[in-house]
């Protein structure tokens, strides 16, 4: 098994175990830990999570594939997640998307050749009052214009 949880994560796992009635409940927290540690969830990580949460590896895999935020293969360093649902659509998300595509020369679902940016469209981010919105990794960028998103992405490069 080539995936091992970092010492810091191992300590967190021990303290988390006390917070849940059964170790199975740790499936999601552990998937998140692996996700941050590796940048995605490898099959080796699934085995490690299975061991720690006392679940069969297949069950952990089933869970990992159900939730859209877990990636089972590596993606770009910055994950651009353009909210596509109604409130953002009404307030101009299409222009934001076009602006990103023109700047990075990639389509939705693709990663730039330098592995810096992956572009996705996601469902409602709960930012309807400050739309259009793009979530880059964990950070929300709200009230965007086609120009401001370009500045933000250039700032990341």
């Amino acid at each position: 098994m080539s995936f091992v949880f970092s010492n810091e994560n191992l300590q967190t796992i021990e303290s988390l175990k006390k917070r849940y009635p059964k170790p199975q409940a740790l499936a999601l927290p552990l998937l998140w830990m692996a996700h941050y540690q590796e940048g995605y969830i490898s099959l080796d990580a699934i085995d490690a999570i299975a061991l720690a949460s006392m679940l069969p590896p297949m069950e952990v895999y089933r869970v990992a594939t159900f939730y859209t935020m877990f990636h089972l293969a590596p993606i770009g360093k910055y994950h651009l997640q353009v909210c596509k649902t109604l409130s953002c659509k009404l307030c101009g998300k299409e222009d934001i998307l076009t602006s990103i595509q023109e700047l990075l020369k990639i389509e939705v679902g693709q990663t730039t050749p330098d592995n810096l940016f992956t572009l996705s469209q996601v469902e409602c981010l709960g930012s309807c009052g400050t739309s259009p919105v793009v979530q880059i990794n964990d950070t929300y960028y709200e009230n965007l214009t086609p120009q401001s998103i370009v500045e933000i992405i250039k700032g990341l490069k």
Binding site: Y20, P29, W32, Y67, T68, M69, F70, V122, E123
Partner: peptide
């Protein structure tokens, strides 16, 4: 009393 935040992962 303990409070634990449990984070989901993208499922409406």
């Amino acid at each position: 009393l303990d409070i634990t935040i449990h984070r989901g992962a993208g499922a409406y």
